[in-house]
Each structure stands twice: as structure tokens, then as C-alpha cells.
Amino acid sequence: MSGRGLKQLSILTALVLLAGYLLVFFWVPMDALEGFRQKVFYLHVPLAIVALCGFVAGGVEGFRHLRTDDRRHDANSYVFIHISVVFGVATLITGMLWAKASWGHYWVWDEPTLVSFLIVFLLYCTYYPFRYAIEDRDRQARYASVFAITAGAFVPLNFMAVRMAQSLIHPRVFATSEGGLPGSMMFTFLVCLVGMALLWVTLVKLELLGKQTSGQVSKLRRALEAEGYGNDEPTGTVGRRIAPNLEAQ
């Protein structure tokens, strides 16, 4: 089901990302102040935006799971959060490299966006041990949805609180990064953002497909065992144990 169109989607993603980063390296003008290292902006910022949107979308899927009691929404919520955490790691790493290059330090506590992102990331890291600690599958799905909703509501609030803490101590000019961008940079940035969002969707679909397939495999294996074939223990991974089960669909 989610496998349909995956190939086309992957090709589209690769093309948009390639186009975006070709623009970054060969077309868009060098930043006057930062020069070449400013180009990490086109990687770092889209990663961060997509990860945060993915976290909030995971909360929305959690809400839909509680409303409909449909396990597919729980699986979506899990995969959304999972892929967004991966994007979060990439965001933190690219952010730290950029910070080292421009500010001279890997970590700068005065930068509200950096700190808020770290807090959100730490919160979502606890999603895995939390899921893992609940054995009953239904309860696990329900509790994970409650977590996803709570954390999804937390994301914007946290950004607000951290920004207030910083901007009040260090008054800064609130020029949004987009507002100050010249047209060519803005265009390139948007292409990169779209490409990154497509990458996220592709990975989500791939992961969901994997879950579905392994669900089907274990279903078939059990059917075989019931008929007396094969008695070897299925080699389980940690991922399979915490990941939502899609067998029912």
C-alpha cells in the first residue's frame, strides 16, 4: 500500500535535492560576511524545519490514533517521530559545525534556536525508552500517542519560552532570516526545503513499508509454525519490539 509510488517519489526526491544543492554550489551568490561556510545554511535549516514539522505531525497522528483507535495512525506517529529524530541528529551536527566555523565554538548557549532544538531533541529521545518499557501492545500504542500529543504541544511552547529567556537578556533585532534574504538565496533555500521535505516523506514511506513487510513475514512465519514447519526462533531486532505492529492491516 505505502509501497506504491515509492520509486517515483525517490527519483523526484533525488532530483529536487540534486537541483537544490547544485543551485547552492554553483548559482547562489556567496554570503558577503561568511563566504563559503554560509552554504551549510541550505542544509541545516531545512533539516531543522522538517524535523520540527515532523514532530508536530507525529503529535497530530497520535491524536488521530486516540480518536479512531486505528493502529495505522500509531505506526505513522512512531515513524514520523523516528525519522524526525534522525533528522534532529543531523541538524545538531550540522548546526555545531556551522557554529564552530562562524562563532568559534561548537556550542553557544546564547543562541535560543539552538537551545530550544536541543531540549526538543532530548524530549523526543525519551520516546524510545518510554515505548520500550510498556509491554502490552494496545497500551503501548495509546501511551505513545499521549506522549506524541504532549510533546507536539510542547514544541512551539518551548521555542517561545527559550526565545523569551534569551531575547530579554540580549536584546536583538528580530529580523527573521527569511525576511533578510535576497531573492536568489530565498529561492535556493525553498528548493532545498522542498527537497528535504520530500526526503523525509520518502524515508517515512520506506520505513512504513519495512514495518509492513516484517509484519507480514512474521504473520506468515506463524502460519507456517502452526502447520508444523520451521521451529526456529525468529531473529528479532530491538526495532521490531518497540515498533508498532502492522500485522492487522
Binding site: V120, T126, F130, A133, F154, N158, A161, V162, M164, A165
Partner: peptide, 26 residues
């Protein structure tokens, strides 16, 4: 949320601390 899981004592601080960071900031 934590009371019905296996790692109750561990999960409460783990989940709670990031969530209360904004409260602590204020």
C-alpha cells in the same frame, strides 16, 4: 504514563525533565 510501565522510577525523571525546562526557565 510511567506507572504502568516496567521502568517507572526511571521514566518519570527522563520524561519530565525536558518537559519542565520552559517552566524552569520562567
Amino acid at each position: 504514563m510511567a506507572v504502568n510501565s516496567r521502568a517507572r522510577d526511571l521514566l518519570v525523571p527522563l520524561l519530565l525533565l525536558p518537559l519542565v525546562v520552559p517552566l524552569m526557565i520562567a
